[in-house]
Amino acid sequence: MLQQYKTTLFIFLIFTFASAQIDPDKVIIRKTLSEAWELDSIDKQGTFRLMSYRPIYFSAARWSSRRNTEPFNESGEFQSKDKNIFNNIETKFQISFKTKVIQGLLFGTGDLWVGYTQKAHWQVYNKTLSRAFREVNYEPEVMLNFPTKIPLFKGHIRTVGLTLNHQSNGKDIPTSRSWNRIILNIGYEYKNWNINFRPWYRMPDDEDENPGITRSVGDAELEVATHFGKHEFYTIINHSFSTLEKGNIQLNYVFPIHGHLRGHAQVFQGYGETLIDYNIQQTTIGIGVSFANW
């Protein structure tokens, strides 16, 4: 456990130090889809360059309207009888990286990427639980992207791709949670607006630890982002095609502090903020700092 704390603090300090060294006049608030995925020839950077993928942030305080004191899943097989004494205030952080491993697949147009995202909820203010990590979600991915420039309304569909996604919390039964998906990604761009639509197919699992996850979390994601000067806003919506009453929405506001260091306010409402909470509805509010966005 002590090693986990050291690793977390080390990562946080590296990003804080690196952010403070950047000239604020050279800060790029949001990359275009071409810059993010190297779609156009002018943006090609080759392979095996490590770069940010999803937003990287640290929320010093995250408040929840509902504590999941008895995690369970709908099958009952993985039900936990433990009475977990969680605080409704904790810290949350997310780190995310990607790298291109093959450039110019399939007639020289496609690129193969690998990505990794880790999201952690840390009961750092909870002395009763020895400041333990409540939930850590691990998400490795393999992504095949193709550049496009299809006119749509006043903008363009700039990328179409497929992703093989695995997400798990690395725990043992009864609180183990995981699922595998094949995700279609469609990226649309108009002026300073980026829209990504990601419907997915959940792959069958003989030992299903969360059988109702698509009913709670959904089977598609919509991400909409824009910026005004150095202020950035992005929304992530997950919803199901089969039910209308569940899903979730996450609202994010990123604002300048100093150099590349920016503040980050986040509001979440709905189901599945973490895998262990996939069938728990809650509202959460977090405040912290942001290091990198989409």
Rank of each mutant, 00 (worst) to 15 (best):
R215P: 10
V267F: 14
G229W: 06
I249G: 13
H231V: 10
I249W: 11
N238V: 02
T274K: 11
G212M: 04
Q269Y: 03
K246P: 04
P211M: 11
A225H: 00
Q250Y: 03
F241W: 15
F268A: 00
T226E: 09
D205I: 09
T243V: 14
I257H: 03
I237E: 02
G229Y: 01
N210V: 04
I249Y: 02
D205G: 14
A220M: 08
Y234N: 05
I213M: 04
M203R: 02
P199G: 10
Y253V: 06
R262E: 04
Y201R: 13
E273N: 11
G259R: 07
T226I: 01
Q250A: 03
L251W: 11
G272M: 08
G218R: 00
D219G: 11
S242R: 05
P256A: 08
F228D: 02
F268D: 00
K246T: 15
F228S: 01
M203K: 04
E221R: 13
F241P: 09
G247A: 10
P211G: 12
D219R: 02
E209C: 03
M203T: 12
G247I: 10
F268P: 11
E221T: 14
E273G: 03
K230R: 15
R262G: 13
W200F: 15
R202A: 10
L261E: 00
V267L: 11
E223V: 15
V254F: 09
Y271G: 00
F233Y: 12
H239I: 02
I213S: 02
Q266S: 13
H258I: 15
Y271Q: 07
Q250P: 00
V224P: 05
V267A: 14
I249Q: 05
I236R: 09
F268V: 02
D219V: 10
L222P: 07
T243Q: 15
